[in-house]
Computed example of a mutant assay.
Amino acid sequence: MRLNVNGQNYEIDADPQMPLLWVLRDLMNIKGPKFGCGVAACGACTVLMDGLPIRSCSYPVEQASGRITTIEGISDGATLHRVQEAWIEHNVPQCGYCQSGQILAAVALLDEVPQPTDADIDTAMTNLCRCGTYPRIKAAIKAAAGMES
């Protein structure tokens, strides 16, 4: 199989039904996406496929077509993505386990809705955070959008 991950093309030898998460983590050594629940409920495994958030823990690799972006691929390495900068500014992470998925969901939201309302944020941000940093997540999204936080 061929995958485009973080702007690079890869040839992968994997069972077509293997979840994309395990291909990324175990075969490609990309550790940003995390295993949380295994049933696409929590969002710790969120990656972007052609800019849309998907839950990679239950997404068969054979269906992974298009450009896949993980947390490792949203910045150029020299500068952080504006969402990452806002996350730092608003001290969003507590334990940090869910944060790569949270950030990618926020990136997708802002790409689709550059000036999101609270309702837009509530609708788009369905990833779970056991630490309960939701108010800081919302403030960081508004800051990344250039809105008052």
Rank of each mutant, 00 (worst) to 15 (best):
residue 128 L to G: 03
residue 94 Q to R: 03
residue 10 Y to H: 14
residue 39 V to Q: 10
residue 44 A to N: 00
residue 6 N to C: 05
residue 78 A to N: 14
residue 76 D to L: 09
residue 49 M to Y: 06
residue 19 P to R: 03
residue 101 G to P: 05
residue 89 E to P: 07
residue 71 I to E: 04
residue 8 Q to G: 08
residue 51 G to V: 08
residue 106 A to I: 06
residue 54 I to V: 15
residue 50 D to G: 09
residue 33 P to K: 01
residue 2 R to K: 14
residue 43 G to M: 07
residue 15 D to N: 15
residue 100 S to N: 13
residue 117 T to M: 04
residue 98 C to R: 07
residue 85 E to A: 15
residue 57 C to Y: 00
residue 24 L to K: 02
residue 60 P to N: 04
residue 67 R to C: 11
residue 88 I to L: 12
residue 17 Q to M: 13
residue 82 R to S: 12
residue 44 A to R: 00
residue 93 P to G: 11
residue 5 V to N: 01
residue 144 A to H: 04
residue 8 Q to S: 15
residue 44 A to H: 02
residue 142 K to F: 00
residue 106 A to C: 10
residue 91 N to F: 13
residue 69 T to Q: 10
residue 16 P to Y: 11
residue 93 P to Y: 07
residue 123 T to S: 15
residue 100 S to A: 14
residue 146 G to A: 07
residue 1 M to N: 06
residue 79 T to Q: 14
residue 12 I to Q: 12
residue 4 N to E: 15
residue 68 I to Q: 12
residue 141 I to F: 03
residue 28 M to W: 10
residue 90 H to D: 08
residue 75 S to W: 12
residue 80 L to N: 13
residue 97 Y to T: 03
residue 126 T to R: 08
residue 27 L to N: 08
residue 58 S to R: 11
residue 110 L to A: 11
residue 128 L to T: 01
residue 104 L to P: 07
residue 64 A to W: 01
residue 147 M to C: 02
residue 38 G to Q: 02
residue 33 P to A: 11
residue 131 C to Q: 01
residue 106 A to P: 06
residue 73 G to D: 13
residue 69 T to S: 13
residue 148 E to L: 06
residue 136 R to D: 00
residue 39 V to R: 05
residue 53 P to R: 05
residue 46 T to W: 00
residue 63 Q to G: 09
residue 84 Q to A: 10
residue 24 L to E: 02
residue 31 K to L: 08
residue 93 P to N: 12
residue 95 C to H: 08
residue 62 E to Q: 14
residue 73 G to F: 05
residue 63 Q to N: 12
residue 37 C to Q: 03
residue 67 R to A: 15
residue 4 N to Q: 14
residue 84 Q to Y: 06
residue 47 V to T: 13
residue 96 G to I: 07
residue 72 E to W: 11
residue 29 N to T: 12
residue 108 A to E: 05
residue 38 G to S: 03
residue 112 E to Y: 06
residue 75 S to N: 15
residue 45 C to Y: 01
residue 75 S to F: 08
residue 122 D to L: 06
residue 48 L to Y: 04
residue 144 A to S: 08
residue 104 L to F: 05
residue 109 L to T: 07
residue 4 N to W: 12
residue 81 H to F: 11
residue 14 A to K: 04
residue 45 C to I: 00
residue 120 D to I: 03
residue 103 I to A: 10
residue 111 D to P: 05
residue 137 I to T: 00
residue 106 A to S: 13
residue 57 C to G: 05
residue 26 D to W: 07
residue 100 S to W: 01
residue 108 A to V: 04
residue 107 V to D: 07
residue 142 K to R: 11
residue 133 T to G: 02
residue 69 T to D: 12
residue 26 D to S: 11
residue 67 R to N: 15
residue 81 H to V: 11
residue 72 E to I: 09
residue 4 N to D: 12
residue 115 Q to S: 10
